[in-house]
Amino acid sequence: MSAAPDLPLWAAILVSFFVVTGALVTLIGSIGLWRLPDFYARLHAPSLGATLGTGAMLVGSIICFSVLQQRPLIHEVLIGLFVTITTPVTLMLLASASLYRDRVEGNDAAPKEDPAPTEP
């Protein structure tokens, strides 16, 4: 169960740190999906995993493969780029779709009128 590539000790510790941190942040985000009380609050939960969770995990992966192949290998940056651009798009679409539905159905979850603009 503990098969893994043979890295120098410092790299192994660094990669372990980033991978476990990323997984922990992602788990906290997913727990938020379960614990937060309503839909609009839950919208904030996935972005934990999509930003810091993915970021830490990919940094770990970049370090691992760069040390393993002895040249900078940064193709994981592509995943990070796609995730940071695509997650906001889905969340914004979901937020506006849900607001539209709540208003059409007259639900209490969304305010009937937009709140008054806050002055700075």
């Binding site: 503990s2 990669v15 372990s16």
Partner: peptide
């Protein structure tokens, strides 16, 4: 280092 990395993964 293999053990550390393996278990943390």
């Amino acid at each position: 280092s293999v053990a550390i990395l393996g278990w943390s993964i």
